[in-house]
Design a protein around this nucleic acid. Structure first.
Lengths: 163, 163
DNA sequence: CGGAACGTTCAGTTCGGATTGAACGAATAC
DNA sequence: GTATTCGTTCAATCCGAACTGAACGTTCCG
C-alpha cells in the first residue's frame, strides 16, 4: 500500500493512455509509461499494478512491450530480486523507438505488398479477369501508391532528426 | 449483383483495411477507400456494401467519415438520384486530410492538456501533495513534453510538404 | 531440500468500438 | 395523394483485442 498518486500524475496517466490509443496501441501501455515518466524513482511491477489498479499480468505484458520499444528500462538494485522500471528520460528516443520498432516494419511490409500487387495485376490481365483499360488504370494507381510509400519511408526518419 | 472483384482489388482492399487499423481507424474505412481507389468508375453506396459484403449502414457511416477526411468525393450523375463515390486520386491529399482533420486536432488538444498539467502541478505543490524535489522533477519532465510536442506540431506539416 | 518471492504464460472473461437491422425522413415517381 | 428509392440514424448485437486469475518455472533464501 503506497501513497496515492498526485493529481498531476493521475491526469498525465490518463492523457498518455489516450495518446496511446490514438496511435492504435493499448491504453495500458501509455498509462504505464505516463506513470513511470513522472516517477522520481524506478518502480516495481507490483507497484505499477497497484498504482494503476491493473492486474500484475497486464503490468507484465505492458512493461515488456515498452521494453521492446525501448521506451522504458530495467534497473537492477543490488540486493533486491525485483526488477525496477524507469522511463527513458529522452522523449525523442521514445518516439524513435516507437517508429523504428513498431511502425517502420509495417511500412516496409506494405511496400512489399504493393510490389506483389503489381504482379497480381499482371496475372489478372492474363487470366482475362480485367480488360486492358482497367489494367492500365489500376497499374497507374498502384504505381502512385508505390511512389508515395517510398517517399514516406524516406521522409519520416528524416523528420525524426528534427525533433 | 455486379461482377466479382479481381484478385488485385481484393488484396488491396485487405491491405488497405490493415493499414487503416494500424493507425487506429476502423478497418472498414480503409477497405472502402481501397475499393474506390482501384475503381475505374464511381460506385454507389449499395455497390460498395455489396462488393465488400458489409451492411449499407456501415457503408454509409464509412463513406461519411472518408468524406470528412476528404479522402473520397461525391459525384452526381445527371438523371440519377444515387450518390456516386470516387476516391481522391491524389494520395498526398488523402494523407494531408487524415493528418489535418484527424491527427492535428488531437495533437493541439494534447498541447492544451500539458499546459493544464503544469498548473495542476503548482496546485499539487501548494496543497502539499508533493514535496519540492518531486515538484522540480515533474516540472522538468512536463516541460520536456511540451517542448517535444511543439516540435512535432511544427515538423509534421513540414514533412508533408516533401511528399 | 522446502518454501517464498518473482516474473511470465495462457485459457477464460470482459469490455468497448465496430457493425447491423430496422425504422425514419426526404426526395422523387406514379 | 400514395408508393418507391434513396441515405441516415439509432438501439441492439457482435466481435476481437485487452485484461484477468490462476498455474507455472525459476531463482533465491533459510
Amino acid at each position: 500500500m503506497s501513497k496515492p498518486l498526485s493529481k498531476t500524475r493521475l491526469e498525465l496517466i490518463e492523457a498518455a493512455g489516450r495518446l496511446s490509443q490514438l496511435v492504435g496501441r493499448p491504453r495500458t501501455i501509455g498509462q504505464i509509461f505516463g506513470l513511470l515518466y513522472l516517477s522520481p524513482r524506478a518502480l516495481t511491477l507490483d507497484e505499477i499494478a497497484e498504482l494503476l489498479e491493473i492486474s500484475k499480468a497486464s503490468a507484465s505484458t505492458g512493461t515488456r512491450q515498452l521494453l521492446a520499444l525501448q521506451a522504458i528500462r530495467q534497473v537492477w538494485k543490488p540486493g533486491d530480486r525485483k526488477d525496477f522500471l524507469e522511463a527513458e528520460p529522452e522523449l525523442r528516443e521514445v518516439v524513435r523507438g516507437v517508429y523504428q520498432l513498431f511502425f517502420a516494419p509495417k511500412l516496409t511490409k506494405t511496400r512489399g505488398r504493393i510490389d506483389l500487387l503489381l504482379e497480381t495485376l499482371d496475372g489478372d490481365r492474363k487470366s482475362g479477369a480485367i480488360d486492358d483499360e482497367e489494367y492500365r488504370f489500376c497499374r497507374d494507381r498502384l504505381l502512385q501508391m508505390s511512389n508515395l510509400q517510398g517517399k514516406v519511408e524516406k521522409v519520416l526518419p528524416l523528420a525524426e532528426k528534427f525533433l
